Computed example of a mutant assay.
Amino acid sequence: MSHDHADAAHDVLALDGVTVRMDGRAILDAVDLRFARGTLTALVGPNGAGKSTLLAVASGDLVPAAGRVRLSGAELRDWKARPLARERSVLPQDHAVRFGFSVREVVAMGRLPHAPDPETDGRIVDAALVSADVTHLAARDVQTLSGGESSRTAFARVLAQTTPVVFLDEPTAALDLQHQEAVLRIARGLADDGACVIVVLHDLNLAAGYADRIAMLHQGRIAADGTPRDVLTQTTIERVYAQPVLVLEHPTRGVPLVVSDDPRSAS
C-alpha cells in the first residue's frame, strides 16, 4: 500500500468527485471534501440530503459510482479489512446486536482488530464503559437494553477501538439531553487529542457547540462548509431547510444559537 506522505500529513481523509446514484437519482453529486486530524466536523442537512450516504462512502461501507476516497494517503479500496478497522471506527445508525452478548462483550469487540493484549484490552474496555456510562450495564444482555442504552453501548465499542479516524452517524438520536452532551463532549475530546472525528447530526445547536467545522448538505451537494459561525446563518439555514429561523448568540458558549421562528397566528 503506497502512501502519499505529504497528503497524509495534513488531510487524513480526502473525497474527490464522490457521486452515489440510487434509482437513477444522485444521492451524492460530485462531492469534494478534506478532513484533517485534530478536528471535529459535523455533517448536517435536511432528511435525504445525503449525510449518512456520505459517511458510508467515507468510511468504506459504500462504494461510490464515481470519484475516489483516500484514507491516510492510500486509496480506500486498497485497505484490507483488519488494518482499516485499526484506522477508522464507525458508529452506524443501526447498531442493534441480534445475539445474546453482554454489554461488556460487545464493547470488547472493539479490540478485535488489535493484537491481543489482555491487560491493555481490559483497561481500554473498562475506560470505554465508564466514558459511555454503561459500566452498570456490563453484564446485561444487549438485547434487553433500551434504545439509549444500546446506543451508548455501541458508542463504547467505538471508543474501545481506539482509531485515529472516527465516524459517528447520529450518535445522539436515541439519547436524553445529558447523554447527548456527554457523547459530543467525548467526541470533542477525541478530536482535541488528535483524532479526525466526523459526526452526522440533526441538532444544529449541538453542531455549533462542539464542531470546529460544519458541512451542510442539500440535495446531495455541499451547500455550505466552514466554521459554525460561517455556516449557521439565517440565510443559509432558511434556504436549505425551508424553515424560518432566528440565529442568536448563545449566552454562555459564544456560538450561534438557532431558534425556530414559526409564529402561530395571533387569532
Rank of each mutant, 00 (worst) to 15 (best):
L55T: 14
E87G: 03
L76I: 04
A108L: 12
R82M: 05
V103A: 09
A65V: 14
V130S: 10
I124V: 15
L137E: 11
V107K: 15
E105D: 15
G48C: 08
F101C: 04
G122Y: 07
P116I: 09
A66N: 03
L84E: 12
V90H: 07
L76S: 01
A58P: 14
E105S: 15
G100V: 02
G45F: 11
A127G: 03
L145K: 02
G110P: 08
K80L: 10
V134P: 07
A127C: 02
A85Y: 06
P64A: 03
V90T: 08
D141C: 03
D121H: 05
V57E: 06
R104Q: 14
D78K: 03
S72H: 03
G45H: 09
A96F: 06
V142K: 06
P116G: 03
S72K: 00
L112D: 04
T53F: 10
L84S: 11
A85I: 06
V125N: 01
R98F: 05
T135H: 13
D94F: 13
R123F: 00
S146Y: 01
A58G: 13
E119C: 02
A115G: 04
G67R: 07
S102G: 15
P113F: 10
P83V: 00
P83L: 04
L145F: 04
F101G: 04
H114M: 06
A74N: 01
P118L: 08
R88Y: 06
Q143F: 01
Q93P: 07
A66I: 07
V134R: 12
T120R: 15
L54S: 07
V125W: 02
V106Y: 08
G110A: 13
W79Q: 00
D126I: 01
E119T: 08
A127L: 04
V130L: 09
L84W: 07
G45D: 03
R104V: 14
A65L: 04
E105A: 15
A85D: 07
E75T: 05
R82G: 00
H95A: 15
R70E: 03
L91N: 00
T53R: 08
P83E: 04
L91W: 00
V134C: 11
R123L: 00
M109L: 14
G73D: 06
V57K: 12
G122E: 05
A56L: 12
